[in-house]
């Protein structure tokens, strides 16, 4: 692959380095670096997961960069069909604030399912939240 800028090492995506792949460099006789990746299988194909649930932020956050961007297929090894479903699921999760549009997804957790009625999950710290919620009358109702 022709280097995009002089001194480039690797394919250039994320400046030639992936988060999860291990690349090994081999010098050919011509002195140019050749990169190959170890074989990656599509995680969803292996687990036979056809429906990628947008509610599982813990699974989805594996396929998202530190900054919140979706990782390309060549980094994660996902097959084309599942990459499409993954994109849809990540965008749905972003809409419902399970994943960030930009920024670290470090705070994401799997949902703790609580049956309605047994809802005692309110931590007292929530009430003492420093950001005061503006009075509902002050802001215009939605719609």
């Amino acid at each position: 692959m022709a280097p995009a800028w002089p001194g480039q090492r690797g394919k250039g995506g994320r400046y030639g380095r992936g988060t999860e792949t291990s690349t090994s460099a081999k010098r050919t006789s011509a002195g140019k670096r050749q990169y190959f990746r170890k074989k990656k299988v599509c995680k969803f194909c292996v687990e036979k997961m056809d429906f990628i649930d947008y509610k599982r932020a813990d699974i989805l956050s594996q396929f998202v960069q530190e900054r919140g961007k979706i990782l390309p297929r060549r980094m994660t090894g996902v097959c084309a069909r599942h990459q499409r479903g993954l994109g849809v699921a990540i965008k749905r999760a972003r809409n419902i604030a399970l994943l960030p549009f930009s920024g670290s997804a470090a705070g994401t957790q799997a949902p703790r399912v609580v049956a309605p009625g047994a809802h005692g999950a309110h931590a007292p710290a929530v009430a003492a939240h420093p950001a005061p919620a503006p009075a509902p009358a002050a802001e215009a109702p939605k719609g």
């Binding site: 972003r94 604030a97 920024g103 997804a105 957790q109 949902p111 703790r112 309605p116 809802h119």
Partner: peptide
């Protein structure tokens, strides 16, 4: 119906 309880949002809403 499922209640997931209080959860940290990924961005301010």
């Amino acid at each position: 119906t499922e209640q997931w309880g209080t959860r940290k949002l990924a961005y301010r809403v």
